[in-house]
């Protein structure tokens, strides 16, 4: 692992904007960070004195806590802001909120927002580093990165690997980020779901579409099972949850009928018995909890790569100031 990390720039908005090299550089950097969480003292002094604001305008448990652990294990000072407890309910705009935070001298913002493009909008308006923790149906880059890391842990090479994303592709920023990331790294990508939940024309991205879960399972080596977003189901995209499970649920009999051993991922939170059955989620194919563990390492890597590091001093760094 002697490859120089590829600079990421100021922000991490989405994997669509990154090169394969940049994505690999994040994954490689995440490897040594895994070990820090296994230590007795789970802390390294990397971001000492940096202030990070976690601006979560949409509910989130896993992602917020994962970011918070990553930040704290790198010794950053963190503040959490959620929509309900902030001036947002009083009508303050996103930019005004951020500018007020800037005025208190912060260094990074991790943003989760219900509107696609919110992270980019913010990044273009404030000098702090901005990390997208999910914006509308656009992207959720750190989730896709931890998926990629987990897949790589088990299958070693992503190039040529057949990965199928199953479920609600239409509303899913996780699906989009995964598609971009997987394609950049040379994987073959399939999507599978009810026709109402697979965007028309998605083949143009370079993915293949499966209408039946059985065909997807026969083709794929890895399944990334997405949550059926119940809160976005008002529009009548599926007739019933039971029917969804019947036709698209990832079940043990379906996995056992597969020609090879599949790896099953799920970004959580799971609807057990809907998109994934309990015996699969808790069974030997599942790497769901390892995804959660890897999430902290990947976020540490992103924070590390984005923080500080003035490019004009790159030369000085190469000469090495340490003896």
């Amino acid at each position: 692992m002697t490859r120089e990390p590829s600079p990421l720039g100021k922000d991490l908005i989405g994997l669509e904007e990154l090169t394969g090299e940049q994505i690999l550089s994040i994954l490689d950097t995440a490897e040594p960070f895994k070990e820090i969480s296994e230590r007795r003292i789970k802390k390294v002094p990397v971001l000492r004195g940096k202030t990070i604001v976690n601006l979560f305008m949409e509910p989130s448990t896993r992602t917020r806590i994962s970011f918070e652990f990553a930040e704290k294990r790198l010794s950053a000072d963190t503040v959490n802001i959620s929509a309900s407890g902030s001036s947002v309910v009083k009508g303050e705009t996103l930019v005004d909120t951020a500018r007020n935070l800037e005025a208190m001298r912060i260094d990074m913002v991790v943003i989760r927002h219900g509107s696609s493009g919110a992270a980019r909008f913010l990044a273009d308006r404030i000098p702090s580093n901005v990390i997208n923790a999910g914006d509308g149906a656009h992207e959720h880059p750190t989730q896709a990165l931890l998926d990629l890391l987990t897949i790589r842990d088990h299958r070693h090479e992503l190039e040529g690997l057949k990965v199928c994303i199953v479920g609600d592709i239409l509303h899913s920023r996780v699906a989009r980020s995964n598609i971009f990331g997987l394609l950049r790294l040379g994987a073959e990508v399939g999507v599978c779901g009810p026709m109402t939940l697979v965007p028309a024309g998605i083949e143009a991205l370079g993915v293949r579409v499966f209408r039946r879960i059985e065909e997807a399972i026969e083709w794929a080596e890895v399944l990334n099972v997405l949550r059926l977003q119940l809160e976005r189901m008002q529009g009548g995209f599926v007739p019933s949850l039971r029917e969804y499970n019947r036709f698209f649920g990832v079940t043990m009999p379906r996995l056992e009928a597969a020609p090879r051993d599949l790896l099953v991922l799920h970004p959580g939170p799971m609807n057990r018995g809907v998109e994934i059955d309990s015996d699969v989620a808790d069974g030997p194919h599942s790497v769901i909890l390892q995804q959660v563990t890897n999430g902290v390492a990947v976020r540490m890597a992103v924070l590390y790569l984005l923080a500080g590091g003035a490019p004009e001093r790159a030369e000085a760094a190469k000469k090495g100031g340490m003896g």
Binding site: M1, T2, R3, E4, P5, S6, P7, D28, T29, P32, F33, V46, L47, K50, Y304, L305, A307, G308, G309, A310, P311, E312, R313, A314, A316, A317, G321
Partner: peptide, 10 residues
């Protein structure tokens, strides 16, 4: 660490 860039390999 925070003065040098790009980030050194960990």
């Amino acid at each position: 660490l925070m003065e040098v860039g790009p980030r050194p390999v960990v």
